[in-house]
Design a protein around this nucleic acid. Structure first.
Length: 156
DNA sequence: GCCAACGTTGGC
DNA sequence: GCCAACGTTGGC
């Protein structure tokens, strides 16, 4: 099983939105590195740290599960979509997406500053400067460290 | 709103 | 295939 961190701007799609939806297609990824990770390495059952970016308190707000393998992102050939890419078509699929299923909403955000202070997370990409990739692989150890920190923070 | 990082585009 | 210009991301 693999582990991931996936970024979302809560003004566009938040952990609460995911909780309400239950399962949601992760559409609109238009970066080749992120696409390749989804296409080649993501499998149903993989675990996801759900990260809020570009907001007051940035950090991991909960967890989710990858609920199916990558499949074509149809928004890429929809001219009405914000994610339209004229170079993509049903016959020549350029972009893919996976489905994400809600798993947990942390009582308190594990903030970027929190993560910087956790020794087990010192190699995590997200705490490094200029790391903009919206889908990042994380290790099992890192995933568990974030989860257990969230639990510790909630209980005081 | 600033700006560093960095991916993409396009001229050559 | 190089590389400057440009656009986007995202923390601050």
């Amino acid at each position: 099983m693999n582990y991931w961190l996936m970024k979302s701007e809560p003004s566009a799609f938040s952990i609460d939105d995911l909780k309400e939806a239950g399962t949601e297609p992760w559409d609109g990824i238009r970066n080749y590195q992120a696409r390749n990770l989804m296409r080649d390495d993501m499998k149903a059952g993989d675990k996801v740290l759900f990260y809020h970016s570009s907001t007051d308190v940035v950090g991991v707000v909960g967890t989710a599960t990858v609920s199916c393998e990558a499949y074509p992102d149809h928004t890429s050939w929809d001219p009405e979509s914000n994610y339209f890419d004229p170079k993509s078509s049903p016959d020549n699929v350029r972009w893919v997406m996976v489905d994400i299923t809600f798993n947990s909403h942390f009582p308190e955000v594990v903030t970027l500053d929190d993560m910087r202070a956790i020794p087990a997370l010192e190699d995590m990409r997200v705490i490094k400067k200029g790391q903009r990739l919206s889908i990042q692989p994380v290790t099992a150890k890192e995933f568990k460290a974030v989860e257990s920190f969230a639990k510790k923070k909630a209980t005081g």
